[in-house]
Nucleic acid binder design. Structure first.
Length: 263
DNA sequence: ATGGCCAATATGATTGGA
């Protein structure tokens, strides 16, 4: 079972890159973020033509998440619990059936939080608290659980080209990193860090200032695994080459492989 | 760190991204 996450920065602008990458990497389940469209306008057909079931939770203009799955969905649930007034489309969870029982996958688009001196930062922190509460509850189910998405968190100084530049950014502030550690400390494993201690593993390069050409990247897209998923992890990687394609997203796909099979 | 981008929106200047 191969499970991936990709912030596509508009599903409509990225549909050709997405289908090309799906053919190349053949993931079984894909979590998408920043689809940036209402559900009625989501391009389902080219994805269904490749054998994917499509679960979407979008909104006009901004945000938007989706899950693609070659396995049939058993349950699909949009919205992160904990704040009924939060109308941003940033979370969708689905379950599928496997030889290890229920496999639960969530596609997550955690708020950016910049600039930190506005109400955007406390919204990010509250969202992280809600995510930790949700994760704590889900972990008690003792299922294979994968929380995959754009976390907008640079976990450590090894995950950014020049840490000093980012010290006052919402993605790297001490409180942000502390909240991320609180999340992983519940018992979640960062799939990429389970397979590599290398520096320079990035998932995002800004469109501006030649960031890609200079490799000024950051690692902010993560797959966090419950113990029951981490125990079955066989590999993980970042498809960096996708950033060099025509009309790229500023993020690239991240994937992990598991010794878990469809039934 | 920024000279340099990109996407959506009743299409022209703004907002959001990270």
């Amino acid at each position: 079972m191969r499970i991936a996450t990709w912030n596509v920065n508009s599903i409509k602008q990225r549909i050709e890159n997405l289908t090309a990458w799906l053919k190349e990497r053949s993931p079984d389940i894909v979590c998408l973020q920043e689809t940036k469209t209402v559900d009625d306008a989501f391009p389902r057909e080219p994805l269904e033509a490749l054998g994917y079931n499509v679960a979407i939770h979008g909104q006009k203009t901004f945000n938007g998440v989706a899950i693609l799955s070659k396995l049939k969905f058993d349950e699909v649930t949009p919205r992160l619990p904990g704040d009924d007034a939060d109308d941003h489309a940033r979370f969708i969870e689905a379950t599928v059936s496997t030889d290890r029982g229920v496999l639960r996958v969530a596609s997550i688009y955690l708020p950016n939080g910049n600039p930190p001196d506005t109400d955007k930062y406390p919204y990010k922190i509250r969202w992280m608290d809600r995510l930790a509460k949700y994760a704590h509850e889900r972990l008690q189910l003792e299922e294979p659980l994968i929380l995959a998405g754009d976390y907008n968190v640079i976990p450590t100084a090894d995950d950014v080209h020049n840490p000093a530049v980012w010290t006052k950014d919402a993605l790297f502030l001490p409180q942000t990193r502390s909240k991320f550690r609180a999340l992983t400390s519940l018992g979640l494993t960062d799939a990429i860090r389970a397979v590599s201690d290398d520096k320079g593993l990035y998932t995002f390069w800004d469109y501006q200032a030649g960031a890609w050409q200079k490799n000024w990247g950051i690692r902010i897209d993560h797959l966090l695994l419950s113990p029951q998923a981490a125990d079955r992890l066989t590999g993980a990687g970042i498809d960096k080459h996708v950033r060099s394609w025509e009309r790229p997203s500023d993020h690239v796909p991240v994937y992990a492989d598991f010794a878990i099979e469809a039934v």
